[in-house]
């Protein structure tokens, strides 16, 4: 294989610098002692202390985690079912509509999905009295709907890449399809389900627009809280919060990546 040309290497350097310089500058400024976010006033960790004492932040973080875990779990359940249906069940009635419904939340602009869901919740409330209060439940429903598409695609592509002969052998040996799924298919797609869960969880933690639409007064997720502060400009405590989040995410992603590499190696 030919080595990369000088042009490609400079584009790579430019691309990675472009991706990382903004993040690094946030980390540096989070240790800035000055209250003015853009004037350097010496090294300090005081914004991290203030962050821990800020009850708004901790309660918003708690709501975000609660929603993220619930939505990711539901999305993994439904997404896995949908992915199996698309990859293994062959043709069934209204399969085209089903495929379209599973995939479209991914391409729909968030403002449209958010508005549509809010209008649904308002109509439902008028008709049935539920949901009486918008917050945890409604945000979870919105995030589940939107992120199950990603789980479905991951599971479907894992199944498509997987040899069907194992499942066929089990069936030929007299296994009932349901047992074959539990004993053979599920263990094989477990890594894909885990990857889907993590992606759904991240998407949920990250979402601002859907949550802003379908949440009610008092139900502020972490991105909603950050957005309300950031609207007014750059502040040092948000720099600290961003740094903490980036640290957690980076450690998580790198650990997951190394586990993935090791699994690949043992498989080979």
């Amino acid at each position: 294989m030919k080595a990369n040309s000088r042009f490609i290497i400079s584009m790579l350097s430019f691309g990675y610098a472009f991706l990382y310089i903004p993040l690094i500058s946030v980390v540096i400024y989070s240790f800035n002692d000055s209250r003015l976010a853009t004037v350097w006033g010496g090294f300090s960790t005081r914004w991290y202390g203030e962050l821990l004492r800020n009850e708004q932040v901790t309660s918003a973080l708690f709501l975000s985690l609660k929603v993220g875990i619930s939505a990711a779990t539901l999305a993994t359940l439904f997404g896995t079912m949908a992915g199996m249906a698309l990859a293994r069940f062959g043709r069934f009635r209204s399969r085209n509509l089903f495929t379209g419904l599973v995939m479209s939340p991914m391409v729909m602009p968030e403002v449209i999905t958010g508005l549509a869901l809010l209008l649904l919740f308002v109509s439902l409330q008028q008709l049935t009295g539920w949901p009486g209060q918008r917050g945890f439940g409604t945000i979870t429903i919105a995030h589940t709907t939107f992120s199950m598409a990603y789980v479905a695609i991951i599971v479907q592509s894992r199944l498509a890449a997987m040899d069907e002969s194992l499942e066929e052998a089990a069936m030929d040996l007299g296994g009932r399809p349901f047992r074959v799924m539990i004993d053979i298919t599920l263990p094989l797609i477990a890594p894909a389900m885990l990857a889907g869960w993590l992606l759904a969880f991240t998407l949920s933690l990250d979402d601002l627009v859907l949550a802003s639409f379908v949440s009610g007064p008092g139900g502020s997720t972490l991105p909603m809280l950050i957005f309300s502060k950031v609207k007014l400009g750059v502040t040092p405590d948000i720099n600290a919060l961003a740094t903490v989040i980036m640290l957690f995410v980076s450690v998580g992603v790198v650990v997951a990546w190394r586990i993935g590499l090791r699994m690949q190696r043992t498989n080979d």
Binding site: P22, S25, D206, V230, A242, S250
Partner: peptide
């Protein structure tokens, strides 16, 4: 991994980084 990493970090915070 380095391409995917920023994608996992909050979208809002990445936009915020450019404000600074």
């Amino acid at each position: 991994l380095l391409i995917i990493l920023p994608f996992w970090i909050s979208f809002l915070l990445r936009v915020y980084a450019w404000m600074g």
